[in-house]
């Protein structure tokens, strides 16, 4: 219900929903961040940004503004 990667708490995970292709750069998809995949939040940087996530086997850090554009269903 309106959840995004940015609304996860540390240790929580969710399933990525379809996202708008205009806002998500191709390279994020290429790193494995795809619709239908499980994403979990590993760590948040001390100043609440960026977010350290694990998705589809890759460990990535992305900024909150982008994480906020990726809708998920919480698990």
């Amino acid at each position: 219900m309106g959840d995004t990667i940015a609304s996860l708490r540390i240790g929580e995970s969710g399933i990525i929903e379809d996202f708008s292709l205009d806002v998500i750069p191709l390279c994020l998809l290429e790193m494995g961040c795809l619709p239908g995949k499980e994403v979990s939040l590993i760590q948040i940087a001390p100043l609440k940004d960026p977010l350290y996530i694990k998705v589809n086997g890759s460990h990535l850090a992305i900024r909150k503004e982008m994480a906020d554009l990726i809708n998920i269903t919480k698990l």
Binding site: P25, C27, M31, P50, S58, H59, L60, A61, R63, M66
Partner: peptide, 10 residues
Amino acid sequence: KSFFIIEMPN
């Protein structure tokens, strides 16, 4: 346009 993605390697 800003995007920031880095891999956190082992």
